[in-house]
Design a protein around this nucleic acid. Structure first.
Length: 465
RNA sequence: UCCUCCUUAGCUCAGUUGGUUAGAGCACCUGACUGUUAAUCAGGGGGUCCUAGGUUCAAGUCCUAGAGGGGGAGCCA
């Protein structure tokens, strides 16, 4: 008697063989039938599809069948047979059904009909049992695996950068303080300020907003590294594209310039999307059929087409010449707003766009200054609907120029002395970028809201489950 | 944080210019049906109309405040 996943039975029935006994375990999605026969759709999470369990009611205790309701967990043993009905190739002719756990149909929050995304978020503890979220979780796994696979195959090393950090040098955003101090009785110094010398680390510490600066330290030793870990932003952002806790992938490569960086970013994203198309077609097909009729087409489009590359200056030119009335005025020097990026990606080019060489004033201190003295070698990868999916740059590798930028921006040198030393000792050109994992998931799943592609979303005023 | 929309049965939603007992589909319960495909058919139960005030003879409906949620914007990945 072999226990098998439903995926094995549906995809490789020859493993068991038609006519042979098999045991499956899972959760009931629906039960239909009449007073002589019942059809139970059983799902075990191994695949989006259910296996049909056929039960001749004369062979079963009425009280057992009565407990077979949507949400109940079962162990079913029976014969794997070719289905007499349409809609599935094989099914199980049940000889034994054990209800492992019942689910009171009056109380079970999930029904066989569709629910709204908003409602499912409120029951995130049961949301993994829905078809759609099963697809999301399987795809999250597939993309995580693909990320490690891509980097491993290209000679990168996975580096673990700290979650708790004392530096906010990047200025990437508001941070969450990490402390063990008694908040009802915070120690103060002579100036009346919080005395962090009495805190656990003896200084003010926060959750990381980026592993990049530490990642650079690794790249300037191992050549190619990447990080893939949780990242935290304390901004009061309430949008379908932001989370307070998310996962970020940050490759960093020595001897890479901005063009190498763009080539790698494009190749990397295309690899990931291709991986999903090749390994998770059942999940993608379900999401395509139920939520987003153009999903698969869009994924193919990204894999098959070169990303458009242009400079910030060229983009500004296109925006001005478009004659469009934008809410935010377009002129050289301003940061591009969502409406501008959307115009470029969705209206003008109609494909992913990589923008480079932004004015130094609107970008971070560590980006390499161009010869013009006005722009830096930044690159943003812009995707339809999602906007910025990747942000990166070639880094400033010249000690004097970097020091000057640090002083211009009034960044305390005592906080970044270690970062500066990488440019003092054996500096090399290098580049890297950050990819928001959940933004990638938005693109790959076609979901509309970032809260629907992470198991337990953390957003302002919400840390349930 | 700003703008805007929404909140009515377990779920999704309708509810007209304010008017008698607030509806539908699905779910649930009962029954019918020998292979169903979100099964079908018949019947039944199920409501703090988000909360608190207010206007009115009369409020699900109008006004004020609050709570929760969606969308857009900003910040960014």
């Amino acid at each position: 008697m072999s226990k098998r996943t439903i995926k094995d039975l549906l995809k490789k029935p020859e493993i068991v063989g038609i006519g042979n006994q098999v045991t499956v375990q899972g959760w009931v999605r629906t039960k239909r039938g009449n007073n002589t026969i019942a059809f139970i759709a059983l799902n075990d999470g191994s695949i989006v599809h259910n296996i049909q369990i056929v039960a001749e009611l004369s062979q079963f205790d009425e009280n057992v069948i009565k407990k077979v309701t949507t949400g109940a967990s079962l162990r079913v043993t029976g014969k794997l047979v070719e289905s007499q009905g349409k809609g599935q190739a094989v099914e199980i002719q049940a000889s034994e059904i054990v209800v492992l756990g019942s689910a009171d149909p009056e109380l079970y929050p999930l029904q066989k009909k569709g629910h709204s995304m908003e409602y499912l978020r409120e029951i995130a503890h049961l949301r993994p049992r829905t078809n759609y979220f099963g697809c999301v979780l399987r795809l999250r796994h597939a993309m995580s695996y693909a990320i490690h696979t891509y980097f491993h195959n290209h000679g990168y090393f996975y580096m673990h950068t700290p979650i708790i950090t004392a530096s906010d040098a990047e200025g990437a955003g508001a941070m969450f303080t990490v402390t063990t101090m008694d908040l009802n009785n915070v120690p103060k110094n002579a100036n009346g300020e919080v005395d962090y010398t009495q805190d656990f680390f003896g200084k003010h510490t926060c959750l990381t907003v980026s592993g990049q600066l530490e990642g650079e330290l690794g790249a300037l030793a191992l050549g190619k590294i990447y990080t893939f870990g949780p990242t935290f932003r304390a901004e009061n952002s309430n949008t379908p594209r932001h989370l307070a806790e998310f996962w970020m992938i940050e490759p960093e490569v020595a001897f890479f310039d901005i063009v190498d960086n763009m080539d790698m970013a494009e190749d990397f994203i295309k690899f990931l999307v291709r991986f999903a198309l090749e390994n998770n077609m059942d999940d993608l097909q379900f999401l395509n059929d139920m939520f987003d009729k153009e999903l698969i087409e869009r994924l193919h489009f990204v894999v098959d087409n070169k990303f458009v590359r242009l400079t910030y200056t060229e983009a500004i030119d296109i925006l001005i010449k478009s004659g469009r009335k934008f809410e935010y005025k377009v002129e050289w020097g301003v940061d591009l707003h969502a409406e501008h990026e959307r115009y470029l990606v969705e209206n003008h080019f109609k494909k992913p766009v990589i923008l480079t060489d932004y004015p130094k004033e609107i970008k971070a201190f560590y980006m390499k200054l161009n010869e013009d003295g006005k722009t830096v070698r930044a690159m943003d990868v812009l995707f339809p609907k999602i906007g910025e999916i990747i942000g990166g740059s070639e880094r400033e590798s010249d000690y004097e120029k970097l020091l000057q930028r640090i002083r211009d921006l009034h960044i305390p040198e005592k906080d970044v002395w270690w970062y500066l030393e990488t440019r003092k000792f054996g500096t090399v050109p290098h580049a890297g970028f950050g990819l928001g994992f959940e933004r990638l998931m938005l693109f790959v799943t076609g979901m509309q809201n970032i809260r629907d592609v992470i198991p337990f979303p953390r957003t302002p005023q919400n840390a349930e489950f």
